[in-house]
Design a protein around this nucleic acid. Structure first.
Length: 885
RNA sequence: GGGCAUUUAGCUCAGUUGGUUAGAGCGCUACAUUGACAUUGUAGAGGUCACAGAUUCGAAUUCUGUAUUGCCCA
């Protein structure tokens, strides 16, 4: 693709406009297949995208996450690795089903009116309609994914793999069915995993209710409960065996208020004697702890709820009412009947469904579980021993905590959208089922297991439930390469290199991928996990659709350019820390792009003359800038190795803005109207190209654009996107140090000019009493930037002059006509004050025998040098002060 | 309640094994404008490193305690 000669350089707009440019280059990259990957001899660099929900839309979290992945992938590609970034989407069982149900309801259709197949047709329709929007949006961001590899967790091959995995784990005895207390979502009508429940403190009441002791005239005990609506399900009262207050109740029975049903009083040291009244009502069907107590004491279990949270026939007169209405009604009834002792305000943790926000109801139900203890072991060990590195490493702690206390995973969900559990029931008995891939295989197995050779397909009934979404996504790094079935690609791309994700899904997803990785590949699914922060608004709130506090990423990119937004996102996102998002950051990114654009415009405005000799100052500037680029390249290697992307970008930002634009270009820039020598011009473009390469992973669009302006790069092989990363060349350390002194000098001269209103066009003479470290090699540069007519060496102070110190050298600029002596004196006095303070602290150390005796010699030598430097500086300043009168 | 983190400039963050009077970006203030860029330039102000102890010749850095904010688990 060509840019050159389309317009004359000076007709380039002064303001960089990313909009048309970005689309153009993305199309070009796709057209030339730069993002495609096939196994070859090169080292693979693989990243699998955390698959977004198939019907989701791009939010700021995706922007951050995918920007980071793209930076890593693009850099790896330029470093000559076979970069492969696999995109795709997740079917997001519960979230998608909820949306489909919602849409059907709007059309007046209830899920319960549809057959499973009809419902799934609707779900697929919805998926095809909205699916992949988010992937299109990622293209606008510049994501360099291999789109030919796009996967969906419900693709046929993927689906198959998930089913096979279930069967395999079942056959290994790791998947089992059990009645357990699960987190029941009465709105979505499904069980949820612990991770899908959000616990929050909520205000409520603690009800003190009295129960009559059976067979007594007027004896009572009082319990405290937050859930009076469950009293119809009470099957015991529990007290602490050593609680002296209740010894007289041992062996007695109590009567449930309102119903009068008799229940035993049991003893268990589980009871916290300090809490409430010290008496506990036991409702085994509706509380996890009570369930355990019930099992232990052989109590009856009375389930009083329907699946939707209304009371069933066990609820007596409350049958059919919603649980929260019952709470109110029972409150009144207990009060009216004299059972309510009192209520008090109480704050406790209430669990709500992540998806529907419904209050979770603990519920006994028959579910499928995956036994985790053994599976988790290698996954724990290999994170702890660093085989898989977490960035930042602090997350290892919570990972370990979770993995050491891992509970069995409830993998079934009472939904239709997802991978249907491959279990077929043939009888009423508890183990009257088989697990098999197809109905006919199931039939064969069932005939054998049941001994009923005449069993027919019609006698089989497949489990209605599907698997937890994470039971498919835990296979992602393997199954995107069809790795459960064929070694062809997975052996090349797996283990993947880096995973970029949010700490929120460390347990949902990361831990389980590691488990699956060791179970099915015998090795880790990735080498590094980079945990991004959570994008928050300026008030520190998490960005969410419901709060409406999230900017629209597409709008942002239209406004600031994708490059600008990428830079904005990365500027303040140290790994693992939250990112308080501020649009100003994108503005800063846009301004940066504009700066780069104008630096380029400047180079294009120069008239190049091959006859002109190169100035010394230009040669000096080029040598220095080359060293700086190399220095930054080294820093970048270290920063990328530690995933310190924010710092990497900031280092690059300063290299470009400060070093290249403010110092280098100012130094080589010819006087207005004069031509530039060819040597300097060529070197400048060469430096510019290195800079473009370094910038490319962060700002792919603009760098590609300028890359094509700089040279005629019309063949596909010449795109910046696949250009080799610059190699680190030699660094002149002395020059780098000298240049810092040089900068200070320039600053000082500028100050003298400013404070005395000496315009830049009036040239000055600078007198130097040079000491160690004086940057003599940069004199030409100094003359140019400060507009000096000469630099003169001197060995004594120059009378009637402004003076300043830099390094171990003194400098003097003779007064012109108008001079503000007082201001000059004040300035010198301020400096004397500063140095005196410094000297005092140094001398304090040196006069301390214990310091001199104990500190390492190099430190003491350093302090002595500081002392002598400070003393000589003071000398100079004091005598100058004297001169000024 | 238990565990893990956090606390450094107005904001967001760096600060490697203890060793220059603690740095950056943004913001702020002042000044500048025909010649790349006002989406700019130059300069400046701004910090008892949460607090209290301890260790050390020396602590933002190590230890103890307190407070703070956040996350995870119960």
């Amino acid at each position: 693709m060509r840019n050159r000669n389309e317009i004359a350089p000076m007709e380039l707009p002064t303001i960089y406009d990313p909009n048309t440019i970005e689309d153009k280059w993305y199309a070009y990259w796709l057209e030339n297949g730069y993002f495609r990957s096939k196994p070859d001899d090169r080292e693979a660099y693989t990243v699998v995208i955390p698959p977004p929900n198939v019907t989701g839309v791009l939010h700021m979290g995706h922007m951050l996450n995918n920007t980071i992945q793209d930076v890593l992938v693009r850099r790896a590609r330029m470093l000559g690795k076979n970069a492969c970034w696999v995109p795709g989407t997740d079917h997001a069982s519960i979230a998608t089903e909820a949306k489909v149900v919602h849409r059907l309801r709007e059309k007046g259709i209830r899920k319960s009116d549809l057959t499973r197949d009809a419902f799934l047709d609707h779900a697929w329709e919805w998926t095809h309609e909205h699916g992949g929007i988010i992937l299109e949006q990622l293209k606008k961001l510049g994501a360099s994914c291999d789109w030919d590899r796009t996967r969906f967790t419900m693709d046929e091959a993927y689906y198959d793999g998930v089913i096979d995995t279930f069967i395999d784990l079942f056959n290994k005895g790791l998947i089992y069915r059990d009645v357990r207390m699960v987190n029941w979502d009465p709105v979505a009508l499904t069980a949820l995993s612990d991770e899908e429940v959000i616990h929050k403190e909520e205000h409520g009441l603690l009800y003190h209710v009295r129960y009559a002791i059976a067979d007594t005239e007027d004896e009572w005990l009082t319990i405290a409960t937050t859930r009076p609506e469950t009293i119809m399900g009470d099957t015991a009262i529990c007290i602490h065996p050593e609680d002296e207050r209740f010894v007289h109740l041992h062996g007695k029975e109590a009567c449930v208020p309102l119903s009068g049903r008799r229940i035993p009083i049991v003893l268990d040291d589980y009871v916290d004697r300090e809490f409430g009244t010290g008496c506990l009502k036991v409702t085994p069907a509706h509380d996890v702890n009570d369930c355990d107590l019930g099992k232990k004491h052989g109590l009856e279990t009375i389930d009083i709820f329907h699946a939707n949270g209304t009371l069933n026939e066990q609820g007596g007169k409350y049958e059919g009412m919603d649980r929260f209405d019952v709470r109110k009604a029972i409150h009144q009834d207990l009060d009216a009947a004299g059972f309510l002792v009192k209520t008090e305000d109480y704050t406790n943790k209430v669990g709500r469904s992540e998806r529907t926000d419904a209050v979770i109801e603990p519920r006994l139900s028959l579910q499928w579980f995956l036994s985790m203890k053994e599976l988790a072991k290698p996954a724990l060990d290999h994170v702890m021993d660093g085989t898989i590195a977490f960035h930042p490493p602090k997350f290892k702690n919570s990972y370990r905590h979770w993995m050491e206390n891992v509970k069995d995973w409830c993998v079934s969900r009472q939904l239709w959208w997802g991978h249907r559990i491959p279990a077929w029931f043939y009888g009423e008995e508890e183990d009257g089922f088989v697990v098999a891939k197809t109905a006919s295989e199931a039939l064969d197995a069932a005939r054998i297991k049941s001994g009923r050779a005449d069993m027919q397909l019609e006698d089989l009934r497949q489990d209605e439930d599907v698997m937890d979404t994470w039971f498919s996504s835990w296979l992602w790094p393997i199954q995107v390469f069809d790795g459960l079935k064929t070694e062809e690609e997975v052996s090349y791309y797996y283990p993947t290199a880096d995973l970029v994700t949010a700490p929120e899904i460390m347990f949902f997803w990361v831990a389980r991928m590691i488990i699956a990785g060791y179970e099915y590949r015998g090795e880790a699914p990735f080498k590094n996990v980079y945990y991004t922060g959570i994008v928050r608004d300026q008030q520190g709130r998490k960005m969410s659709k419901s709060l409406g506090n999230s900017p629209d990423p597409i709008e942002l990119m239209n406004q600031y350019g994708a490059d600008g937004v990428r830079v904005g996102m990365l500027l303040t996102s140290p790994a693992g820390n939250d990112l308080p998002f501020d649009e100003k950051l994108c503005e800063q990114g846009r301004n940066f792009a504009n700066k780069i654009w104008n630096a380029f415009r400047l180079t294009q405005s120069w008239e190049v003359d091959h006859q002109v000799e190169q100035r010394d100052s230009s040669a000096q500037a080029i040598a220095w800038m080359k060293s700086r680029v190399n220095e930054v390249l080294l820093e970048l290697d270290a920063q990328f190795a530690e995933f310190r992307l924010s710092e990497a970008l900031m280092g690059t930002y300063r290299l470009v803005w400060d070093d290249f634009c403010s110092w280098y270009l100012e130094l080589v820039k010819p006087t207005y109207g004069e031509p530039l020598d060819a040597k300097t011009y060529d070197a400048t473009l060469e430096l510019f190209e290195s800079i473009l390469k370094i910038l490319h992973p962060f700002m792919p669009f603009q760098t590609e654009e300028i890359w094509h302006w700089i040279g005629d790069r019309s063949t596909p092989a010449e795109a910046l996107c696949i250009a080799p990363w610059p190699t680190v060349g030699a660094m002149d350390q002395d020059l780098l140090v000298h240049f810092e002194t040089f900068k200070q000098l320039v600053s000082e001269v500028r100050n003298v000019r400013k404070e005395n209103q000496i315009p830049h066009r009036d040239s000055l003479v600078l007198h130097v009493d040079s000491g160690e470290g004086y940057p003599a090699s940069l004199e030409a540069a100094l003359i140019k930037l400060c507009n000096l007519s000469a630099i003169e060496q001197t060995k004594e102070k120059v009378p009637n002059s402004f003076g300043f110190l830099a390094g171990r050298s003194s400098f003097f600029i003779p007064f012109g006509e108008a001079v503000d002596v007082d201001a000059e004196k004040e300035k010198i006095q301020k400096e004397i004050q500063h140095i005196t303070g410094f000297l005092k602290s140094v001398q304090g150390k040196l006069s301390n025998e214990r310091f001199v005796g104990n500190a390492p010699e190099s430190v003491v030598v350093m302090e002595r040098k500081k002392e002598s430097d400070a003393l000589s500086k003071l000398d100079v300043l004091n005598s100058k002060l004297k001169d000024l009168g």
